[in-house]
Structures are given as C-alpha cells and as structure tokens.
Write a protein that binds this DNA or RNA. Structure first.
Lengths: 200, 200, 200, 200
DNA sequence: TATGAATGAGGCTTCATTCAT
DNA sequence: TATGAATGAAGCCTCATTCAT
C-alpha cells in the first residue's frame, strides 16, 4: 500500500535524522523539534511514531546492537581459528563505524559509554556482547589457542575496551580518522591483543 | 590560624559531597541543591565557591587528572623496564579506583567518557594522558622492548581503553568488583597487552 | 477561516494582559507568570509566542511607537501651518494616552524614560521621533513661522519633553488626570511652546 | 577624631563610588559588591553605613534634590523678575549637570524618571519641585509677568519637562553634549518657554 | 497521518542581606 | 570599623509531552 510505504518512510526519516542530530549535538542537547526539523516533519509526528525522545535513541541502539550481537554469535558458531574470530568481531565493529560513523558515535557516546543514563537501561544487552566475546576467548582457551591464565570476561573487556577506545579516538579526532587505514587498524588491534606489544 | 584549621573547609566539604552525589545519580540528574544538602550547607554557598555546577565537576576532574598526568610523566622520567612503566601507569589508575571508586566513577563516566559534554572541554588534558602513554611505548620501541610495527598512539589507546573498560566493568558490576583481586588485575592487564592473549 | 476568527488570538491576549500588568506593577516587578495568569493562559505559552519577557515589552513598544513615527511623518507631509503640525503631534500623543493610558504608561515609564535598560535598545527609534519633530521646526523656521535662533533639535526636545512630562504627571497623579480636559491641555501645550509664557 | 575622619571618608567614598557605578551600569544592574569594589572596600561595609542598596540611592537623591528644592525656594524668596527666577532654576539644574553629570544622570534616570520604582518613593519630594516652580509661575501671573490662562502647575510641568528632556538628551547623546554651550542652552530654554517659538 | 498550539514542571543562577569574627 | 563567608528566596527560561483539529 502506498500509505504503508509512506509510513515506513517517515519513521525511517525520523530515525535517520535523529542519528545526524544526536551525533552533531549530543542527545541531551537535541530537542525533539531539532529531530523533526532535520527530518522535515512537524515535531508532533515524532510522537506519533515514538513514545518519547528516549525511545528514538533506544530504537537506534537496539537496531544496531542486535546486529553486533548476531555477528558475534554467528562468528562463534561459524568456527575457524579463534584469533580469526576475534578479528571478525573487531572487523564488524570497525566496519560499522566506517559505514556509518554518525550512528556508531551516537551508540558509543550516548549509550555504551553513558552508563549513568542510557547505558543503564541497556546494560543487559551490552553485557551480552561482552559475554559473547568472552565465550570466544573461553573456547580458544579450551582449544589451547589462548593462554589459560586470563579470565575470559577479563580478556573480553580488555579487547572490547581497546576497540571502543579506538573508535572513540577516531570520533573525537584524537586519532586522525582521515589518515587512518581502517583495515590495517583491524589487523593491529588483533595483533596487539593476541600477540602482545612485546616482540616474540 | 587555629580558626582556619578548626573550621571545617566548606569548599572541600562541597567537593566531597559532589563526588558522592554525582556518583550516585549522575551529573545531569543531580541538582545543585542535592550537592548542598549532601554537604550540609546552604544552597548559595555552592555558588560562593564555584561559578557553576559545571565548575564543581571541572574542579574534581582537574584535581584528579593532574595527578594521573604527573604519575605518567614521573613514571617515564624514572626510567626502568618499559613494561614496568606501563605497569606503573595501570597500577596508578587501578589504585585510584580502589582508593576512591566514587571519584573515579565520576571522572570516567562524566568526563572521560562523556566526550560530548565535559570530555569536550577537557579533551586536551585527556589527550595528554594518551600521549604520555604513547611516549612510553615509543621509547620502548626505540629501546627494542616493544615491537615497532604498532603506532605508539595506537598502542596507547588500546592500552588505556583496556584499563578504562576494566574500571567501567567494576563500576557497573559487569565484572564483580567485590570478587576482584585488584593487584592480580593489574598484572593480567599488563600481561595481556604486552604478552598477548596467545601463548608464547 | 472561521476557526481562526472564532479562536481567541492568544498572542494578542498575552500582549494585552502584559500591558495591564506592566502598568500595574512595572516591568521589573512583573513575573512572566503574572502575565500568563492575567492572560489566562499557561506559563509556557508566553514563550511560545515570545522569545523572552523583554520581547513582550519590545513588541508593545514597537507596535505603538511606529504609529507615532508615522503620525509625525504624515503630519509633516500633509503640510499646513507649522504651528498646527506641532499641535497635531501633541494631539496624537495626548489622544494615545486618553485612548489607552495603560499602554502609554508602559511605553513612557518602561521604555522612553528607561534609558538605561529598554530605552537603550530603542534609542534609534526614539531619536527618530525627536528628529521628526525637529524637522517640523526646521521647516517652520525656513518658512518664517518659527524664530530662527533656536536649534530645531533643541526645540524638539523642549517640545517633546513638555508633552511627556505632562503625560507623566497624569500617569502618576501629579496632575489630577480625572479633572483634566485633554483637548484644552493640547491647546495650552501648543500655546506655551509657540507663544511662550509671557503675554504678547 | 581621626576615627571620625576615617568614618566620614569611607561613607563618602562609598556614595561617590555608587554614583559612578549607577551611572555606568544602572541601578538594577549594579550589585552591592560592584559599589564596594569601586569604592575599594569590602561589601559588608556598605551595610555598615547603609541599611540597603536602596538606601544608597535614596541618600544620593535626597542629598542632591534637597539642594534643588532649596534653590527653587531661595530663588523665589529672593524676588526679582519672574523670568529671571525661571532662568535661575534652569541655570541651577543645568549647572548641576555640568558640574556632576554622573550624579545627575543617576538622579534623573533612576529616580525622577523611574516613577515605578524609586520615583514612587520620592514622589512627594519630586512634586515639591514642581510646585515650587508652579509658585514662581503663579506669582508671575499675579504680577502680570506671565499670561494668566495657563494653570501654574501645568506651566511648571512644561518647563521642568523641557529642562529634564534636555539633560536626558545630553546624557544619552541624543544631543551632543560635547558641542553644547551650556550657558547658551539655559538662555534658549528660557527664551523658548517665556517667549515661545513664534517670532514676536 | 500530520500539525503545532498549549501545558507546566523543573533547575540553574543571581544577589541582597545577615552574621560571626 | 571592617571583612567576606553563609544564607535562601526569587524568577527566567527550557523543553518534553499532550491534545485538539
């Protein structure tokens, strides 16, 4: 139906606009009317599609984060060398950023690292990512691919923390994203975490 | 003066109260009156000592962060095996958390990871920490203690990201801080980053 | 549209209410909530139509003052004896007061004579009135209707000052407005300024 | 006593400072601490000498206004041509401005023309000036020096309004005070009001 | 679906004034 | 007389949300 198509469009339009404004101004600093303006609709319409301003961000987060969770699980299920599995996770995250830096900025800045506000709400889902990575590590340890004296969740946090810090560095230009070779970055990430900084 | 010594330092009292309330409710959710109440002083006194609510947080951050910067610089200046230098940095941060978890929570959650609000203001100082760590890495590479194919700032971000993520995990009970042996955590951190996850 | 016509114009309602409250309490002493209460609307609606409390006053002033400016220009353009032109200006101002004493009170007390606050903002427009009157005087001098040894702007200030002081006297009951014959007042004003206090 | 001398000095120092700050920023916009800063004393001291911020302004007003009232009464008592009496009043006011423009600015802007705030409080004293001038007019009418068809208070308001408007013009640079010949201004003022704008 | 007028709670900040020393 | 720490009332403005059309 045409009407259905329109509906979907406006909702999407609002979500996409929200990403841009949230990325530009931060969640707290953006008014609902800013989203509407950016989307080119009246701000009442935002409330037609979403219960609240919060829900818009929730939607953005859940939409994207579920992809990450799937990717992690899929990676693990697919098997292969454990080092490569970590590489696949890093790759997925880095590519997410490369593909849509604004969305990833919003998710990291406003949810993942905003543990006092939105992070709190989504702690369970965020934790599932950590645990998914931890499972890869645990499996690797069992298979003898990883050393056994580091708790899997500990290793997972280290790994995820490193990845996210990197993205954060790109986002806020601590590391010049413009000069970054993202594929090389993925490699170095895995190299650092798996091989260590010290020469072998 | 005796009176000066005897008199409670209201300014300090306010700062300490602010740490507790910020840690408990988050910066945005705490009203200035909450700080005053927690400190047991009148509303207006907060504004006698600080220009704004923001400045209270600024003060807390700068006070603590400058210690970190000094520690990093001192560590580097003191020399010694480069691996131990990273260990010293990790140790300083972990001990900061162990000693005053509420303050570190505030600094990480409200400044370091709040890049859209306060982090923005203090980006330069935050970056200085990254660069201080990067310098340690660079020195280690020159001395042959660290592999040379990883950009120092890249390694620094990886390292710092791992440390902060760990603290974050403790703060939000993703990793049960209660069961954590902090000294062991420091070791594992350095082991992970320097030796890598894969067995040698 | 019928609905548009039937619907009370809330914006107008707020402006009219503001006149009453400003006149009664003075601008500084009236809270935005006083305006809203007087208008019978919600607090926030004032901010829906006006950027700030200041803007409400600005609007009132500009709305009215532009009429005065038009009247002065129109009077001059229309020609006729120069004495009558001054009379027309005086007449317009006195009638403005007679017709809406509260509005004129607000404009004089809060803008025209509040040179340190609002007057400052509107100095240019206020000056235009002085200059408009000065032009009438200058024309009169050229035509030989007025003596030539008094600078037009000087004469204008004298004239306008006299008129405003009169209104001020009525407003604050220095001169009992109740007993005043406004039309006679206009005449006397012109007589005084044009013929002088001394008998001819 | 030395202490007495000091006392007097500080009080005066505060009053003089207040004039400067009130003139510069306006009464509402100046904080008690601004006065103290300008005077070079602690702001608590202001409250040692004055009950409130208002009282500082009151003091300044009363101090000066009583001189004006005396001058008017004295002028009338001294006798002489009635026209010269008006000239003496105008002269006193203009000279007051010439001698201490900041003080006169404060008195006019913050009291005389602030009828909604301080003017209200001092209305009685202000009115006494109008009445003093009115008396001169009334006497002049009785003596046949002034025409009898203009109510004395009416004429007084006209005259005072003209004078104050002139000062106001100088204060706010509507009339360039720098280029003004004050003595000539006095003459023209009296000429305008007594002889009228029309040629005789 | 779509609009934007209307609502009103919430919070930061200012600053006159008091008071202990 | 002199200081400035301490108090707390007061008010502007923002903005998420509701609702009539």
């Amino acid at each position: 139906m045409a009407s259905k198509a329109t509906t979907v469009d406006k909702r999407r339009q609002i979500l996409d606009a929200a990403v841009r404004v949230f990325a530009r101004q931060g969640f707290h600093a953006t008014r609902v009317s800013d989203i509407a303006d950016e989307a080119g609709v009246a701000y009442g319409l935002v409330y037609h599609y979403f219960r609240s301003k919060d829900e818009v961000l929730n939607e953005l987060f859940v939409e994207r984060w579920s992809l990450l969770l799937s990717a992690i699980e899929e990676t693990d299920r697919a098997g292969g060398p454990h080092r490569d599995r970590l590489a696949a996770v890093a790759s997925f995250i880095v590519d997410s950023y490369r593909h849509d830096p604004e969305l990833m900025k919003v998710i990291i800045v406003e949810v993942t690292r905003a543990a006092n506000s939105f992070g709190r709400t989504h702690l369970a889902e965020i934790r599932r990512a950590y645990e998914g990575i931890a499972k890869i590590v645990a499996d690797g340890q069992e298979a003898g691919a990883f050393r056994g004296d580091i708790a899997p969740l500990f290793a997972s946090m280290t790994f995820y923390g490193a990845v996210e810090q990197l993205l954060s560095g790109w986002i806020f230009d601590v590391i010049p994203a413009s000069e970054t070779n993202f594929d090389q970055a993925k490699d170095l990430l895995v190299t650092t975490i798996c091989d260590g900084l010290e020469p072998r």
